[in-house]
Simulated scan of single mutants.
Amino acid sequence: MFIRNESFQSFTRSYPVVTTIIGIHFVLFLWMNLFPFLGGDFIRNQGIGINAFIMMGEYWRLVTPIFLHVTITHVLFNSFSLFLFGPALEQMLGKTRFIAAYLLTGILANVATLLIGGVSYLPHLGASGAIFGLFGIYLYMVLYRKDLIDSANAQVVMTILIIGLIMTFVNPRINIYAHLFGLIAGAAIGPIILYKISRFAYVRRQSRPDDHEVTFDPQRWQKKSRNKQLFKKIAFISILVLAAIAFLARFL
């Protein structure tokens, strides 16, 4: 579910929404930092989340911060998280539902920041609220839709989620409201966004032929014990990478 073994071309074709969002992350980040006098400063100034300006009617600031990042570690951390955990949901939900879930949870995270943080809250930006929204959907699956996720993948999700919540309160520059309410929003829309989604539909999407690659192994359930160890290794490596990026973010 979270193993990425596609080529670049195969990944972009299989997960166009995730690819597009990651591309937007880096294009806007590079534009803001490398070309400030060619529109970069305008993007930053008009896109960043500032509660006082939102209260004055600049409601687009509830959306634009989802795609903006301030440092290289910030954009790498969020893009890497989306790269790992976005594709499975895009395959499962389809393009339209995935886009709706990503934007809705990101917006609700910013709305919570506005309502709870108030007019004096610091300017904020980043995709973390939307990414935690995806984790909220996974959390709902772990708790109530076990037919959509096996135990090994559920362990990966819960481990990464716990690490993410810990880092939320450790790093003083993180928007705590966005993380927590993005997660809550994802879990809350879980019953709606997963309505009529079945394991069969997910497997059917996965098994579409692509460049003659075998994407679905009908005997994979017989390899469960072996795959479980592999998933644990992937989870451990992912935790180390995410923790390292989060640690560096405190100093860059």
Rank of each mutant, 00 (worst) to 15 (best):
R61Y: 03
S120D: 13
K95M: 06
N171I: 15
S79D: 05
M158S: 14
I174L: 03
A101S: 14
Y102N: 00
G47C: 07
F85Q: 00
V111N: 10
N51L: 02
R145L: 12
L103C: 08
L103F: 11
F98I: 01
P65M: 07
S151M: 09
I166S: 11
M167Y: 15
E58F: 08
I137N: 10
V75C: 07
F77A: 08
P123D: 05
A101G: 09
F80D: 00
E58P: 06
M141R: 02
I137K: 04
A88V: 14
P87D: 05
V70L: 12
I66D: 00
W60K: 03
M167E: 15
Q91A: 04
L148H: 08
Y177A: 11
I72N: 09
F83M: 10
I99F: 13
I116L: 09
A109G: 14
Y138L: 04
L161W: 02
A109F: 05
T64H: 04
M92P: 10
I131R: 06
V156M: 08
L114M: 11
N175F: 04
A112E: 13
P87M: 08
V111F: 00
A152L: 07
H69F: 15
L180C: 13
L82R: 06
L122K: 12
G57V: 00
L103A: 06
G117S: 07
T71E: 09
L148G: 06
L89Q: 04
L165S: 14
G164R: 12
R61L: 08
I160L: 15
G57N: 04
T159G: 05
G126H: 03
M56N: 15
F83Y: 05
T64P: 06
A127K: 02
L82C: 03
I137Q: 10
Q91P: 12
I174W: 09
Y102L: 01
I137G: 12
D41H: 04
S79R: 09
I107Q: 04
L161G: 11
F42R: 15
L89H: 00
V157W: 01
N175I: 08
F67S: 00
A88C: 14
R61F: 03
E90D: 10
Y138Q: 12
L108I: 10
F135W: 11
A130W: 00
P87H: 00
T64E: 00
A152Q: 13
D41K: 03
I137M: 13
Q46D: 06
D150V: 08
L165K: 09
G94L: 03
N51R: 09
M92G: 12
F83S: 09
I176D: 07
Y59D: 11
N51A: 12
